[in-house]
């Protein structure tokens, strides 16, 4: 019996939960299926896609979602790396420090989003109070389109940096300490060790963290929904929020499916590009390490 046959059960499972809904969405994106059609799917000759291409709101949301994802994930990786390096040191009460650093990540997103909404609240939140006593005027962070998105990024960094740190910490622990000892004997300082040993060997874990985080950040929903509801002036609206509104609030399933499939295509091509770039970088640094 060929071994590939053994994969069949999991393949069937994957098709059922992954491919079928996707095919259904593609089919739906070529139909009008909304409250106005009595929730019946009626073919509409690609009208959804016409609308999608010209939907300036979608492209604004895409930009905002990408901005959110890149800024927050970059910050999380940098901070997470630093935190992982610290947690990897032989500290006193290390177990306690390690587990307590995970608290933000363990909190449900909606709960912490509600918390941040009140912390940033004008005029009752503590941050606004502080700024008002310093600047003399309130910050109004959640009411200004130019800064509201930064508060959502901030809340996301606060919540998910521990997750990145955890993955990177696991990576750090796989690096054998004799590598560092050998490098030290050769006269390498801490900076060289970090650049030549830690970072290259951590790259697979970094890639893993990036994959997880980017996929999650592109689909950001609950955080934004609770903190700002997409406002002010839709400056924090994400793709997932827009698709959700179309489906559940507007009862326009045809267009909602179009947004999902459109975003799926755009984002998966972005991830493929990112993956290629990362593998190229990994190969190059692996080559450098071999030298």
């Amino acid at each position: 019996m060929p071994l590939t046959l053994l994969l069949l059960p999991s393949l069937i499972f994957l098709i059922a939960v992954f491919a079928l809904p996707l095919i259904r969405y593609v089919w739906l994106s070529f139909h009008a299926d909304s409250v106005m059609t009595g929730l019946l799917a009626i073919p509409n000759q690609g009208a959804n896609w016409q609308r999608f291409i010209h939907d300036s709101r979608y492209w604004q949301d895409l930009f905002q979602t990408l901005r959110f994802a890149f800024v927050s994930v970059t910050a999380e990786v940098v901070l997470g790396f630093i935190i992982a390096l610290i947690l990897n040191q032989p500290l006193r009460k290390r177990a306690l420090i390690r587990s307590s650093s995970l608290i933000p990540w363990a909190l449900p997103t909606t709960v912490m989003a509600l918390g941040w909404r009140w912390i940033f609240n004008t005029p009752y939140g503590p941050i606004d109070r502080l700024i008002q006593s310093g600047l003399g005027r309130p910050l109004n962070a959640l009411g200004e389109p130019s800064i509201a998105w930064i508060t959502t990024v901030y809340a996301d960094i606060w919540k998910t940096t521990p997750f990145v740190a955890l993955i990177l910490l696991a990576g750090l622990q796989t690096i054998p300490s004799d590598l560092y000892e050998a490098a030290k004997l050769e006269g390498a300082g801490p900076w060289i060790c970090l650049r030549r040993i830690t970072v290259p060997l951590l790259l697979p874990y970094l890639g893993l963290a990036l994959m997880f985080r980017l996929a999650q950040a592109f689909g950001v929903f609950d955080l934004v929904q609770v903190m700002t509801g997409g406002g002010p002036a839709s400056s924090t609206e994400s793709i997932a929020l827009y698709a959700y509104w179309n489906a559940l609030r507007f009862l326009d399933f045809g267009y909602s499916a179009t947004i999902m499939i459109g975003s799926f295509v755009i984002l998966s091509s972005l991830i493929v590009i990112a993956w290629v770039v990362i593998s190229l970088a990994r190969n190059r640094s692996a080559g450098a390490f071999a030298k």
Binding site: V35, E144, P145, G231, P232, S234, W245, F250
Partner: peptide, 22 residues
């Protein structure tokens, strides 16, 4: 109207843009 949610959403977005100086 059955599409009230959309109509109201449009107004909210644009009005919010005006009130925040966009």
């Amino acid at each position: 109207t059955p599409v009230y949610a959309q109509v109201s959403d449009v107004l909210q977005r644009k009005l919010s843009g005006t009130l925040t100086g966009m």
